[in-house]
Design a binder for these strands. Structure first.
Length: 823
RNA sequence: GCGAGAGUGGCGGAACUGGCAGACGCGCGAGACUUAGGAUCUCGUGGGCAACCGUGGGGGUUCAAGUCCCCCCUCUCGCACCA
């Protein structure tokens, strides 16, 4: 605090540029003139530029947020000047855990905390000069917003995409509450450090798996970072294989397995069931029952975390039962082991230790047979899993009617799958890692489910009764039964079913924070519509989002959930595009000055308010963009902010004198050819760089322009004015002020973007590097139209010292680029 | 372990389809103006006295490699028994 007052001492007068006054002035101007308000205009091409809206936390905006917001703001301002009708909105993802936890501690209603935090965020954003259309501001906690979140839930319910299931939750007995994964650290509750166990509870689940294929396929339609596409693909985890039935040896029934390697079926030497598999009790023999039961119990007690810790050593128990391999009728011992997961495939596998790493390790551990059916590796050393190399062996039926021997595994797979299908022994099958989405939270501060429980059955509320408003309370403590705090509110809880008139109980769960963020981009299009989620005409005008910028921490969940809801809304005709977000970019993480992640405990957190106090919003914006490539992780440097501040002051002095008046060096004469070339080259570079989101190099070009023009004693308006327009998306306040000082009237943001003349971006002279054997020996300054012969002659003379009298074996001349003599 | 991305001066980073490595900024050095400078302006600034050497290391392709190919090392992010 004391330091900043030293810095903010009014030395600004000598600099001639007082960011405080100027920035406040233009922010007020934009507000009053509603400069950034936007409505549908069929006469203009549209551009929808979206930021991932923030959770308004108590600590306010940080410099990492600002990086993304500044980037979209530059694109937005640029696109407007290029004649686009730009939708650039901001809102609040305001339901969430921190406000609720704070309420439990202090008794202060989350709505209060949230409102205060939103006010802070909004004030900070306005200070940065972000050109949002604030008339479209929305909050997920507003009943007029979550009314439609609930409406979407009803649609999901109608279509059978929302259902209730018993699902394990993180239950903390000491706290008497369910915890979110984020609230658990090293298997203990974050608060208090108590034990957390897995406990099945009745939960709402959304059937995202029904959309798995489309979620995967449609990734082809979007322009996203490769890592994000990859993460989504992996999360969906589609794999193709076969399901095969293995009948039990001594009893009725069969074990169905899923395998991606049916080509190895003849190499199966045992089977494994997940410990929770329902057939375990059926197959277990009398002698093994006790051991099986004991193993089952320890496996169930293991949390996910413990399973991970023990991932090196595989464990399991023989059940005493046997199954029969359908292709060669061999008896295979059935084991249970927790390396087989109940939640994937059929919860059972055929084990082929010769060609699967996990089965190989398990077979080694328990001395089970390892039989090679793909030649090409050394199965004594490791499992051979290659499907492109290797030859199938020992894989024919005893009667010789079927064989895949001699083929490569990838050839054999379709062959045997087809045969299994014909024989009725198996079927081609596709499996996904993706699970249905656990959609309920045992929380107060979230959207209530529009559902009543009548005679043990879930009944949707009629649409007309939406929104189902979150009831008021002063008690945010968990109910203690595992239900949300809503279970304490009897007056709200018990009601009458409007259809049957029977007594009903309201659903006490609330929706997860993801719910509100799944569709907010649609509401921005038509935020005040009271009869529709979004007006179809407006939706068709604005969708899809053309540019979406936000952190990579949302690479999977938010982006997958939003795509899922979008597709459901597409199916019911609410949206007109298959995908919501066309182009996606993640801004990189901003590290502290010490190159470490910013954190309170390290004391390296940079506060944007302090930076703006000291250097002004324009400088902070510019620095955020100048740091480096948008997507890269990079450290903050306050020195760097000083650097761009100097740049802005140079721009200022380029046209303003000591008295704060337009400088006399600004003239109306025709610029020199050199100045025109400089300008056109700068327009080209800045334009192309903004389009490609390379803001750092755009700024460096503007610095070059400024440095060059500073040298000139006559600075023609014809080059200075377009330059101010180029600068305006980056440093809008200074740009407005300078535009005004130049005597121009309306807001700089409503001026057309300068266009460059390609003929003006090339110089009439060029420099040709002269190489001898690839080494730079001289440089040649020649006119642009010098003939290659002439260049060679001049170059020979320049490089005579190195060529001497040696014969040149080869002369390579790259047109207008370089000449190289090979001797 | 698997997948994705990245390694360039003292620092942040430039370098389009292979064609002058280090743009621009920070820092540093020298000078100018100044009572003064943490202001401003000018000049310099990869290493080496030089020939030369330099883009994580080692090979290769090419007249020419930061850029292309092969092997290896390091870092970041994600997934993690997914049959």
């Amino acid at each position: 605090m004391l330091e900043s007052s030293v810095f903010s001492a009014p030395t600004t007068m000598s600099k001639g540029y007082d960011h405080r006054t100027i920035e406040a002035k233009w922010q007020q101007y934009w507000d009053q003139h509603r400069t950034f308000r936007v409505t549908e205009d069929p006469g203009k091409p549209k551009f929808y530029c979206l930021d991932m809206f923030p959770y308004p936390s108590g600590s306010g905006l940080h410099v990492g947020h600002l990086e993304g917001y500044t980037a979209t703001d530059i694109v937005t301002r640029y696109k407007r000047m290029r004649g686009f009708n730009v939708l650039h909105p901001m809102g609040w993802d305001a339901f969430g855990l921190p406000a609720e936890q704070y309420a439990v501690k202090t008794g202060i209603h989350p709505a209060m905390t949230t409102a205060e935090n939103i006010a802070t965020f909004k004030r900070q954003m306005k200070r940065v000069g972000l050109s949002y259309d604030w008339e479209r501001e929305l909050s997920t906690t507003d009943p007029q917003y979550y009314r439609w979140t609930q409406w979407i839930f009803l649609k999901l319910f109608d279509r059978g995409l929302a259902y209730v299931a018993e699902v394990p939750v993180n239950w903390c007995p000491a706290l008497g509450t369910v915890l979110a994964n984020e609230e658990i650290v090293d298997g203990k509750s974050e608060v208090g450090g108590f034990d957390v166990i897995r406990k099945p509870m009745r939960q709402w689940v959304l059937k995202i798996t029904a959309y798995a294929d489309r979620l995967l396929e449609d990734l082809k339609l979007v322009d996203w970072p490769p890592s994000t596409l990859e993460m989504q693909k992996n999360w969906i985890g589609r794999s193709i294989g076969a399901e095969v039935d293995f009948s039990l040896a001594d009893r009725r029934g069969a074990i169905r397995v899923f395998t991606t390697r049916p080509d190895t079926l003849f190499g199966a030497t045992y089977m494994v069931l997940a410990p929770e598999h329902p057939l375990v009790d059926v197959v277990a023999s009398e002698e093994q029952k006790a051991a099986v039961q004991a193993y089952r119990e320890t496996a169930m007690k293991k949390s996910d975390l413990q399973r991970q810790e023990l991932d090196k050593e595989k464990t399991g128990v023989f059940t005493g039962g046997y199954a029969v391999n359908p292709v060669n009728h061999e008896r295979l011992p059935i084991w249970i082991a927790d390396y087989v997961l109940m939640s994937y495939g059929t919860g059972a596998i055929m084990a082929v230790p010769a060609h699967d790493e996990r089965d190989w390790a398990f077979a080694r551990q328990y001395h089970l047979t390892i039989r090679e059916v793909i030649a090409g590796g050394n199965i004594k050393e490791a499992a051979f899993t290659d499907t492109d190399r290797g030859t199938v062996v020992n894989s024919a039926t005893s009667d010789g009617s079927f064989s895949i021997n001699g083929r490569t595994p990838s050839e054999a797979i379709p062959k045997i799958t087809e045969w299994l299908e014909k024989q009725g022994k198996g079927i081609r099958a596709v499996n996904y890692k993706l699970r249905d989405w656990l959609f309920a939270r045992q929380r107060y501060w979230g959207e209530p489910f529009p559902v009543l429980w009548v005679d043990g059955e879930a009944r949707p509320l009629p649409e007309e009764q939406l929104p189902l408003v979150l009831p008021e309370t002063g008690n945010f403590k968990p109910s203690g039964t595992g239900e949300s705090p809503l279970a304490n509110l009897d007056a709200w809880l018990t009601t009458i079913d409007p259809i049957t008139g029977k007594p009903a109980r309201r659903e006490t769960n609330t929706m997860p924070q993801w719910a509100g963020s799944c569709w907010y981009y649609l509401r921005f299009i038509d935020p005040k519509n009271s009869t529709h989620l979004v007006d179809p005409i407006k939706e068709r005008y604005w969708m899809p989002v053309d540019l979406y910028i936000g952190g990579s921490e949302h690479a999977v969940l938010h982006l997958l959930y939003a795509r899922f809801w979008h597709k459901v809304l597409f199916d019911i005709g609410v949206t007109s595009t298959p995908e919501p977000f066309l182009k996606l970019v993640h801004q990189g993480i901003v590290l502290g000055e010490d190159n470490q992640k910013m954190s309170k405990s390290r004391g390296n957190v940079v506060n944007p308010d302090e930076m703006i106090d000291q250097f002004g919003a324009d400088a902070v914006r510019l620095y955020e963009m100048f740091m480096g490539p948008l997507e890269a992780m990079k450290p903050w440097s306050t020195r760097g902010v000083e650097g761009v501040t100097r740049f802005l002051e140079r721009v200022w002095r380029l046209m303003v004198d000591e008295q704060g008046r337009l400088s006399s060096v600004i003239v109306s004469t025709v610029p020199s050819l050199y100045q025109q070339r400089l300008l056109h080259h700068t327009i080209k570079k800045v334009t192309e760089d903004i389009e490609a989101l390379r803001f750092n190099t755009a700024i460096s070009q503007m610095m070059i322009f400024t440095n060059e023009m500073t040298k000139a004693h006559q600075r023609p308006r014809a080059v200075i004015e377009p330059f101010i327009l180029l600068l305006s998306p980056f440093a809008p306040h200074v740009a407005e002020e300078l535009w005004n000082l130049l005597g121009r009237q309306s807001s700089v943001s409503q001026q057309p973007w300068p266009i460059y003349d390609p003929a003006m971006t090339v110089s009439e002279r060029m420099t040709i590097p002269v190489q001898v054997n690839g080494r730079l020996r001289a440089k040649l300054e020649v006119a642009i139209d010098t003939s290659p012969d002439e260049i060679e002659r001049l170059a020979r003379a320049e490089a005579a010292e190195w060529i001497q009298d040696k014969e040149t074996k080869k002369v390579i001349y790259v047109d207008k680029k370089l000449i190289n003599f090979v001797i």
